[in-house]
Design a protein around this nucleic acid. Structure first.
Lengths: 294, 294
DNA sequence: ATCAACTTATCTAAATATCAGATAGATACT
DNA sequence: AGTATCTATCTGATATTTAGATAAGTTGAT
């Protein structure tokens, strides 16, 4: 039953220690504050102030309720602030998809700042497998994505390169390939190759990676890394995926006799202009453009 | 500017999917709900509902603001509930002092239930050294205490025994005393004794514990246990304090040739009736009476 | 003790906000 | 077409809130 004006009067009076001062702060008549607090006391059934002296002082119970009053007031401020943010063009939610092959760390650093700047935007993070980011953007499920570059994108998708990721053939340190000083294509062909494959059945980009005729597929590079760690086959994986296992010595990089320079793959920011981005999305996009990855 | 009635109307309409149904739930006229929501939309500057079809549906922005509206409403409910609790005789805060020699664990189990039963009472826990609980109760700093029994308590303090704690002479496993099969008083007198002493300079109860002429004092039994672990002297400590270090073998109990039965010391609940306890304090007191410690 | 300067409580009348009821127009379903 | 249900809007009645004036109390200085 107590309303927000009564709570504001209560808070102002508690902070200033005077009903009159509270009235001046709130730009209301003294009688308005006095009435508000008396009514609040009647409705809540609690004596909030001890008026025996000149300046009213909070009772113990008043002190306790003051904390709850602050809680109401601050959540109300949040409501108003969120409405204002929406009015100024902030979206209410933003979904970002970062392909698993790409290290999220530089983006996470941006997001720390994002959280401060746009406290009311709800953020969702997706980490799809290879080449699935574009589909998420296109369907509207995600608003901004980071993915390994493709030769062509679905219509309506915009993209911009922001760096590179190194891809390298790796296997378990116990794998026969790991015992060779240098491996050639014909060496690789003798063992099972694990290839990343998109969820999208139309996507055929994985075919360009095929070297060995003995193939298994997985959507997630992390699943592949696990298989490799268990000693199964070899795969071309990105540094972000295998950095930790290389560090620990579980996986090793194969030295190649061939195409030493084809191992750099571009990283693109992708988004769509069909659904216009809000203030938060624009801010994030601009920051992503300034990144230099790899 | 938006008020609580408008937020209630917003929430009810969002939940029922209809302004009319919301009005029925809130027992108001349909026009009241319609006005409330329209005014809320004007004041916040956000279109909350899409009215193009028969039943209004939340816009994305409305969905976002609904969450904030819930936050305001629930904190307001908390305010009202807290006021009601205070009215029904709950204190706003309760301070419990548990002497360090006593294991807090049985009380902690009670407090789990307390937190559910009295969610609005702020609880403070103190863990004073030996014999300082009574002073905290007497000064009003704490409302309920658990302490090792004393022969007499300050005036105005009420107490009730709820169990016992075992006190035993302990020292480091590397200490010379630990090498003896059995220790006598004259053995103990040869080494430094560490004694718990109250903060209160008037308190002389530590004198009754003195055996050795080589004395050091500490307020906290845990500090004494640390000194013992480092190999310094011996002390009579309670099981709650040294259980862990006995388990690990850092400290050992000395086998005595004397008074095998004087090692049980009573545990009292103490409180005062000068300041009447509220509902929460009464509840806790009754539960403490039912405990059987030791 | 007296006074000045400040408090809070209370009263009144006016301004304001809120509400229920009636009505009209729109939508969905039979 | 007909029925039921919905929302927006208008209107007058009701309730609440407000400012201003006033009374009475407190504080601290003179």
């Amino acid at each position: 039953m107590p309303n927000l004006d009564q709570l504001s009067a209560f808070i102002a009076a508690a902070e200033t220690g005077s009903f009159s001062a509270a009235a001046r702060r709130l730009k209301k008549a003294q009688s308005a504050v006095s009435n508000a607090i008396i009514n609040l006391e009647i409705e809540s059934g609690v004596d909030l102030f001890d008026r025996s002296s000149r300046s009213p002082t909070l009772t113990d119970q008043g002190e306790a309720l003051l904390k709850s009053a602050y809680a109401v007031q601050s959540s109300h401020h949040d409501f108003v602030a969120k409405a204002r943010a929406l009015n100024l063009g902030e979206e209410s939610e933003l979904c970002i998809a970062i392909e698993q092959n790409i290290s999220p760390q530089p983006v996470v650093e941006l997001l720390i700042e994002f959280e401060q700047t746009f406290p009311f935007i709800e953020l969702e993070l997706l980490d799809p497998g290879i080449n699935d980011v574009a589909a998420l953007i296109r369907s509207g499920r995600a608003h901004i994505g980071l993915m390994l570059e493709q030769e062509e994108y679905p219509q309506g998708i915009k993209f911009k390169g922001i760096g590179h990721s190194r891809r390298m053939p790796v296997c378990s340190r116990n794998h026969p390939l790991a015992q060779l000083k240098q491996v050639s294509h014909s060496d690789l062909r003798q063992y099972r190759q694990l290839v990343m494959k998109s969820l999208d059945p139309e996507d055929t980009s994985h075919n360009r990676q095929v070297i060995s005729p003995k193939l298994w597929y997985a959507e997630s590079p992390f699943v592949i890394a696990e298989l490799l760690s268990a000693g199964l086959g070899w795969a071309a994986l990105h540094e972000a995926v295998v950095a930790e296992q290389l560090e620990k010595g579980i996986l090793v990089v194969l030295s190649r006799t061939y195409q030493q320079d084809a191992n750099l793959q571009g990283i693109d920011v992708v988004w769509t202009e069909q659904k216009a981005l809000g203030k938060g999305g624009q801010w994030l996009l601009e920051r992503l453009f300034k990144l230099k990855l790899g």
